[in-house]
Amino acid sequence: MSHSSHFPHQEPYKLECKPVGLCVIINNKNFMKKKPREGTDKDAESLAEVFSWLGFRILMCEDQESEKMKATLQYFASPGDLSQLQEFSAKEWSGSEFIDPQKAPEHGDAFICCVLSHGELGEVSGIDDKHLSIKEITRTFRETEDSPLTGKPKVFLIQACQGSMTPPGVKSAEQNLQCDSSKPETTADLVNVLVAIATVEDYKAGRDPYHGSWFIQSVCQKLKEGCLKGENISEIFTSVTDEVSKKDGRTKEGPFKQVPEIRSTLTKSLVLSPHHK
């Protein structure tokens, strides 16, 4: 379920709030039974930088068990006060680092949710290796009469393996990649949602321990380039898929390839623009 590249006459979503909206990052690095996901902090900072540049308020929660992830997402679906936010040990991007938040979050005209973790097919992992389905993540923000996000674009970025298979590499490359692996399921078909997953179903997703994951780093770079040109989000993610699918890497198991998957029920053109502060 993907868009064509160009929507010359499509009505855009109105993005008039300041900040534009919230960008929530769940960054699971230190797992109870696995080695740390090296490189994930680089991904989190890259996401914070680019979405801050695009006018969003950035809030990050780290190293969450499955149930805590669920509670965190429910909180952000309909935010409460600052003391509740502090219960989730959230940090806020200040422009150069993550600091303690000073005020409660409020929704604007768009919402971004980034989950950086291990995963299995249709699921992401808490640090306790228990799983939360991508479907459940998106359904937490489903459109209801009292939801502050009804009618507004919601973008989910999932950096996690979706299985244990490795696409064969065309050629070897000098990169020591790691993988984010940890029931077939697909995301709920909810309106005004775009879900971008690092890899197609059944396959692994690569992460460079020094430079971050292929997928998230490509997303951030393509957002920087595309948003300056006024491209809509669907065009940008087509470029991400193209770029990542052409990369060649190597893991301990051998040559490595990766193809992201984009699923969209956006009803309008989502064009994000740099905000000069």
Results as ranks from 00 to 15, higher is better:
L121I: 06
E16L: 11
T140L: 00
D208G: 08
T140S: 00
V193Q: 03
R207C: 09
I262K: 09
A110M: 06
V200E: 14
D63P: 04
L59E: 02
E49F: 02
V271K: 14
A104R: 10
M69I: 15
G55N: 11
R207S: 08
H107A: 02
T166I: 14
C227K: 09
C161Q: 08
T238A: 13
K204C: 05
T144I: 02
L116H: 09
E65P: 01
S172F: 13
V50T: 14
F51D: 05
L15P: 04
A110K: 04
T150K: 15
C113K: 02
F7T: 06
L82W: 02
F215P: 10
L270T: 11
E65K: 15
L194E: 02
S2N: 13
A90I: 10
S5L: 13
K135H: 02
L116F: 08
I236Q: 11
V170N: 14
K91Q: 15
L121W: 07
P168T: 03
E16V: 05
P260Y: 13
E38N: 15
I236L: 08
F256N: 06
C179W: 00
S89R: 14
C114I: 09
M32H: 12
L190E: 13
V240A: 07
S234Y: 01
Q221D: 13
P255H: 04
C179H: 06
I233Y: 03
R263S: 13
T265C: 09
S182A: 14
W53H: 14
G254W: 07
L121T: 14
T150P: 00
A48D: 03
V155A: 07
R139N: 11
G226W: 09
N232D: 15
D63N: 15
M32N: 11
P209T: 07
S269D: 11
H275Y: 12
Q86D: 12
K14Q: 12
C61I: 06
K29R: 14
G206L: 06
A160E: 04
G254N: 07
I99F: 04
K152N: 04
S172E: 14
S182V: 13
P105L: 10
S164M: 04
K103Y: 13
V193D: 03
G108W: 04
P168F: 00
S2D: 12
P153C: 07
G122M: 05
E49G: 06
L22W: 04
S164F: 00
V240C: 09
V115F: 11
K70S: 09
V219A: 03
D100M: 11
I134M: 11
E38R: 15
F141C: 07
H6K: 13
L22G: 05
F98A: 00
F76K: 01
L266N: 06
G249R: 10
V155R: 04
V271Q: 09
S218V: 07
M1Q: 06
K154Y: 09
S218H: 08
F31V: 07
A173Y: 05
I233W: 05
L194F: 08
G230I: 02
K277F: 05
T251Y: 03
G249C: 12
I262G: 07
A205M: 00
Q217I: 00
F98K: 01
P105T: 05
